Computed example of a mutant assay.
Amino acid sequence: MSGDARQGRFEGKVAMVTGAGSGMGAAVARQLAAEGARAVVLADVNGEAVTAVAKELPDGRPVSLDVADAEAVDAAVEDVVREHGRLDVLVHAAGVDDPEVKQVIADALVEGRPPEVTDRLDDASWRRVMRVNLDGTFHVLRAAVRAMRPVKAGAIVVIGSSSVFDAPVGYPHYAASKAGVHALSQAVAKEVIASGIRVNVVAPGPTETGMAARTPAALRTGFADPRVRPYATSEEIADIALFLASDAAANLVGAVLLANGGRFTA
């Protein structure tokens, strides 16, 4: 779809984006504003970063939000409905990885040995990833459905991960959290379509984000495969997310779109 053709796809819509302080979330927020959204609420745990992104947008409003805090998520979504009367689009891009485990995997690659992670993975690391990625997705989905069900309309897009399908060696907690995100989103999608709400998932592969920038060089090199596309840009993933949120995807419900540049198919 050309830029002109999609210029007004979200004309008059009220949108909220989590994880909007950087990467895919920031790209989604910018594109929503460019395509006519009358209000874009940008939420991120990093208040300074999300405020900077919001200042770029004519109708952007920043919110400091930890999606793992259920009450805070509820309050943030309720504020959107109170201020704007409705919530039409929600894109959930907030999530975390585990930099320490990534370094363990990278060191093993450099030394030519298999990584040893599972027996050393502590409860705090497991819970951190699950709390933000899986619990946070539940909190956001629940709050969005509460806002959208009364008007029997709305589109929710969740950023998942291609790691659900290839389950990277040494990354069990991240893969498990995102697998839960996919299953949760699809279960909710089948329920809420009866209320006119569509839920879909984008499953990116390697993408240039702040998270990717912190990936050790050995791991980034491992992702460099001349047979497939290089790292996606955040804007490319945002394009897919906003297609799913648009009326053009009216028949997509509970879809998981694998966007990994051809690294594998599922």
Rank of each mutant, 00 (worst) to 15 (best):
residue 56 E to I: 02
residue 196 G to S: 09
residue 211 M to F: 04
residue 194 A to M: 07
residue 55 K to V: 02
residue 199 V to K: 00
residue 141 L to N: 00
residue 5 A to Q: 14
residue 13 K to D: 10
residue 149 R to P: 05
residue 140 V to A: 14
residue 46 N to F: 08
residue 200 N to A: 11
residue 163 S to Q: 14
residue 118 T to H: 13
residue 199 V to Y: 02
residue 28 V to S: 09
residue 136 G to S: 04
residue 153 A to M: 05
residue 134 L to E: 06
residue 29 A to V: 03
residue 235 E to A: 15
residue 88 D to G: 00
residue 54 A to S: 11
residue 85 G to H: 09
residue 42 L to F: 05
residue 2 S to A: 07
residue 84 H to W: 13
residue 21 G to P: 03
residue 193 I to P: 07
residue 120 R to G: 15
residue 48 E to L: 01
residue 158 V to E: 09
residue 84 H to Y: 15
residue 173 H to Y: 10
residue 162 S to Q: 14
residue 244 L to N: 05
residue 10 F to G: 01
residue 185 S to E: 06
residue 232 A to H: 13
residue 31 Q to M: 15
residue 227 R to A: 15
residue 205 G to L: 01
residue 157 V to I: 06
residue 162 S to L: 11
residue 211 M to R: 00
residue 91 V to D: 06
residue 199 V to Q: 00
residue 31 Q to T: 13
residue 252 L to D: 07
residue 179 A to D: 05
residue 67 V to M: 00
residue 103 Q to V: 08
residue 160 G to K: 00
residue 52 A to G: 02
residue 165 F to H: 14
residue 203 A to E: 13
residue 145 V to L: 06
residue 121 L to M: 11
residue 27 A to Q: 10
residue 51 T to A: 15
residue 29 A to M: 08
residue 237 I to M: 10
residue 59 D to H: 15
residue 29 A to K: 10
residue 121 L to C: 09
residue 180 G to A: 09
residue 112 G to E: 10
residue 50 V to S: 02
residue 141 L to W: 06
residue 231 Y to P: 11
residue 102 K to Q: 13
residue 37 A to R: 01
residue 192 V to Q: 09
residue 102 K to N: 14
residue 233 T to M: 12
residue 69 D to Q: 09
residue 17 V to W: 00
residue 44 D to V: 06
residue 159 I to D: 02
residue 185 S to Y: 08
residue 23 G to W: 06
residue 45 V to Y: 11
residue 23 G to C: 08
residue 160 G to L: 08
residue 53 V to E: 08
residue 188 V to L: 08
residue 31 Q to Y: 07
residue 193 I to H: 13
residue 194 A to V: 06
residue 128 R to Q: 09
residue 252 L to G: 05
residue 84 H to T: 01
residue 100 E to W: 11
residue 164 V to E: 12
residue 194 A to I: 08
residue 191 E to M: 12
residue 32 L to T: 00
residue 118 T to R: 13
residue 154 G to L: 04
residue 133 N to P: 01
